[in-house]
Nucleic acid binder design. Sequence first.
DNA 1: GCTAATCTTGACTGGAAAGGTCAAGAATAG
DNA 2: CTATTCTTGACCTTTCCAGTCAAGATTAGC
Lengths: 155, 155
Amino acid sequence: MRLSSKTMYALRALFDITFHSHGKATKIDAIAARENVPPRFLEQIFQDLKAAQIVGSKRGPNGGYFLLRSPETITIGQVVRAMEGGVEHNCCFGSDAEVREKCKVSAKCVTASVWRDISVQLNAIMDAVTLSELALRGETLRLTRDSDAGLTYTI
Amino acid sequence: MRLSSKTMYALRALFDITFHSHGKATKIDAIAARENVPPRFLEQIFQDLKAAQIVGSKRGPNGGYFLLRSPETITIGQVVRAMEGGVEHNCCFGSDAEVREKCKVSAKCVTASVWRDISVQLNAIMDAVTLSELALRGETLRLTRDSDAGLTYTI
DNA sequence: GCTAATCTTGACTGGAAAGGTCAAGAATAG
DNA sequence: CTATTCTTGACCTTTCCAGTCAAGATTAGC
């Protein structure tokens, strides 16, 4: 059970937007340089975030991506679910109909019942942390704020 | 973020042992038949569970697998960590040294700090559920107890 | 309206991991 | 001795992850 790079990159990119650019559209290359993420890959990631209504975009010069909602209303859980399709397992329920069908134990599956409870709790935990909380932690860790290229985090 | 089949099978197999066989060694084929798991794959899974000191084994006629500890002391978290190597992500910390090294933001990585907190909480949730809790749920769901082959769960 | 900057769309790829299968061997009960 | 059951480790197929790339659409500024 691990978070994919995609999700970690997405969280870092969103943190970056929240922390560095206040409302302004931010271009991919700037984020990629600051957060040390492959720019081409980041494009793909932002498409997912856009589909999930988390960010909006603007093309052309001075374009870029920006948060669609305020940082207080965007949770880690929303991001994780957007990138990974939620917390799932392959027994009795989940998004895949074929998997559900295949599980003979259906509604009476004990492990599924337990895991359902656990995933509800996990989502609650992840929804308790917002982007503004991330930004706050950034302040606490005393990160350097810097709009230019280069690594911001090297003291 | 999904649980692998291996983990789900492991949980079902352990539940099966707890629920159906009281202290007696249970053979793989019986569990596989009841739980509808590929027998060859289950062999492999039990090797992992054995390495994790969760089950013991006995060879020869009337051999099989059995719990090494009482069901009250075996948690879902222990099983998940045994099968999946813990809750991890690929930034700044984790089991892979190279990944840690690669992450330039190191100790000041905000997302890592947040995810560390979340994984601690997740482990706590999973450690709050034991095998005996699973068995209890089995009772509640009024499963048929049956030592012979065949699906036990079809009312 | 031209041009440069920036996102958009979608195809493509190499490698690793998931999800199994199989065969030959070792131990043990009866 | 023999049938049963776990043990070890090699093998295979398919899917997905992580990442690259190219060509096009849109917009700002001159």
